[in-house]
Amino acid sequence: MILHTLNAAPSSSAFADCLKTIAEGDAVLLMGDGVYAAIAQTEASRVLEATKATLYVLADDAMTAGVLNVSAAVSSIDIAGFVALTETFPRQQAWY
């Protein structure tokens, strides 16, 4: 299992490369420009949901970007939640 931290907008190659490697049971944390993939009713949030990975968004980054209509499939977490995730997933890949 892998924790993917995705810090790039949905049109980026980082997003595309990340998608290729996500599998069921993984966790994906959207942060920085990655938060735009959390917007409800978008192609990006739909393809992420289809991976069956557990999806998270960093609350402060979403708030900063004005991303308030977060998809229902994405859980909002803070830094402490991020740290807790890294304890569950020792294997972590940063996409940026």
């Binding site: 294997r91 890949q93 996409w95």
Partner: peptide, 14 residues
């Protein structure tokens, strides 16, 4: 195969 490869390692550095 890339996905499989990644799960073979203790750590990943991007």
């Amino acid at each position: 195969e890339i996905r499989q490869l990644m799960t073979c390692y203790d750590h990943l550095m991007g």
